[in-house]
Amino acid sequence: MKTPNRSALIQGLYLESFPDVAKYIASKGGTLDEAKEIFQEGIVRYYEHIVVKQNPLKSGDKAYLFGICRNLWHSHFQQTIKETALDGSDFSEEPSFTESEQLVTYLKSVGQKCMNLLQSFYYEKLSMTQLATRFGYRSERSATVQKYKCLEKVRNEVKSKSLTYEDFIA
């Protein structure tokens, strides 16, 4: 699902910052695929800091994103060295799904529309007016009530899976 404002933000970040990040990673011996992977993760962290947690930036966007990507590259590089030193394998096997990913897969199967509505509010940070427009509710009040109905529905599904908070965030 592409959202116009967010896609424009992503594209702007690529055009403005990816050349510097790619150049840095190439200078450290990294590949284009590694640069893309690092940059994608960098954008997620940037977005969650600025939009989801609504933290103001102390430095400029470009410097902040570059800093995240440089740190991610160092972590990635250290991890690669450690894994290679362990047994010489390249650890190319698929990662196993975590409890949270399994739960999300289940929740999507029982209520995709509610999950879409909830993520639009809690992750994309749409306002109630924007939420009402996107999902076709007549007023902010209707959208608010529907948001809580969805939250209750999803919470009941979580309850049915008998997971604890510790299981989930571990």
Binding site: V52, S100, E101, L103, V104, L107, K108, M115, L118, Q119, Y122, Y123, E124, L151, V154, R155, V158, L163, T164, Y165, F168, I169
Partner: peptide, 10 residues
């Protein structure tokens, strides 16, 4: 837990 699941999905 529900908020965490929504964040993972988002």
């Amino acid at each position: 837990v529900t908020y965490e699941a929504v964040k993972t999905y988002g």
